[in-house]
Each structure stands twice: as structure tokens, then as C-alpha cells.
Amino acid sequence: FGHTFPFYAGPKPTFPTDTTLAVIVAIFLTSLVTFIIILPGIRGKMRLFWMLRVVTSLFIGAVILAVNFSSEWSVGQVSTNTSYKAFSSQWISANVGLQIGLGGVNITLTGTPVQQLNETIDYNEEFTWRLGENYAEEYANALEKGLPDPVLYLAEKFTPHSPCGLHGQYRLAGHYTSAMLWVAFLCWLLANVMLSMPVLVYGGHMLLATGLFQLLGLLFFSTATSLTPPCPLRLGAATLHTHRGPAYWITLTTGLLCVLLGLAMVVAHRMQ
């Protein structure tokens, strides 16, 4: 290090992706890799069958779990000019994103370009309303922290006392959908146990249940979110509109897949 140590300076590295997602993916990938190691020990055509079966099953499990923690159930994005911060009259041009998950919202603010007013404008802030967490407090903390105006504006719309009513609506929807997904996950576990025991029909039933619970969860989410008219979210001149996000659609797909597979198994068993 010569004589200059330890005058280290330099940027602090940040983990590139969402950690929860990374953990879920890592767990399921590890299971997959283990299975792939075991795969050569399975003989003949069964190998392909098992491969398909395990990959599908792991995929379903991973999706149910990941979607539960995802914040992309409802998403919206708008590019606008907006005021930036307190004690400053300057405006910035930025992309504002809103991602609503089951447990909270995620608000992103990315300057276009990122460097404006001598500052790096790249925010990704989370506000949660999961059980045991206090949204209002988080919002107060954000105020104290001094987050930029657009972020605070959006977060404020989701506070319990905001006349928008978004909080109650999304929180309720989120709670129930999340609960349904947990039940679906349990069913998925049971389905796997049963499928590896010689009670295939029950496995099929469980798979069916997995799918149905996922769909039920989606139903909760859609009804609750479509009941009240959305509150207009104006950022500068533009208005932010939200629509269903990838988490919603992928849940729908896997839910349908589970239902189909489950039905197929049940029907096949009836036919036998």
C-alpha cells in the first residue's frame, strides 16, 4: 500500500439487484442444480419426465414466493418536469415510477439525465404497510430524511389519512392476496410431497388448489383495486397512471398452469 494507505476513498459498492428476489432465485437455483446432479442417476425416459416435472414445480414454487415479495403488481411510469426539493426553486426533468406491491409501494425517481443541479438524481424508495409496520411512520421518516418532492408527493398519497383512500384499498388487497399466495405456497409444498408419494391424485388435487388460490388472490387484488376510482397523481404537468404489472400477469399464468396441470392429472386418474 506504500505510504498512502489507508487514505482510501472511492465509491461504496451496492448490491445490484433486489436482495429478496436474489435469495429466492438462489434457493430455487440451488435446488435445481442439486436435482440436475441427481438426474443422471435416473434411468431411461423417466429422466426427461422428472426433468420436466421438477423444473415446472420449482418454477411454480419460485414464482409464488417471488411474486409475494415483488412490488410490481401495479406499475406506472411517467416522464415529467417537476420541482425537486425543499429550499430550492429549481425544477428537474425526471422519470417517476410507481410500483405497488402487496406489502407496500416503491417509488423511483430518475433524472433525465441522472446528473442535474450537481446532484445524482436516482432514487428508489420503499414504503411498506405490511402487518407490523407503520406506513405513517415511514412517511414521517422520509420527510425527516428529506426525500425529493415527487417521491414525497407519491408516498403521501398512500398515507392512511390521505383523502385518496389508496392506503386502505391497496393495503387490504395486498393483505388478502398475500395470504392467498401463502396458502397457495403451502398447497404447492403439499402437492410436491404427495406427488413424491404414491398418492398422485391428491397431488393433482393439491396442484389444482395451488392454482385456485393463486387465482383467488388475483381476484382479491383486482376487485379491491378497482373498487375505488383512482386518485389522480399529478407530477408537474403530467399525470401518473398505474396498470397491472408483471407480477400480476405471471401469477395469472402460473395459476392457470397449475389449474390445467391439476385438472389434467385428476381427469387422467378418472379415465384410468
Binding site: 446432479i37 441427481i38 442417476g41
Partner: peptide
Amino acid sequence: VQQFKRFVENYRRHIGCLAVFYAIAGGLFL
């Protein structure tokens, strides 16, 4: 390859358990 297949066939449980164990250890490390 043949030997390996035979090995894996008989040591499935071993591989599974090792994978779980080392995955936990690796997870803790990570």
C-alpha cells in the same frame, strides 16, 4: 459416465442431503 450414473443412482439421498447442508453453509457465508 456409466460409473457416475450408477453412483448417482445409489447416492441420491447423499447428494440431496449434502446439497441442503452445503447450501445452508454457503447461504450463511453469502
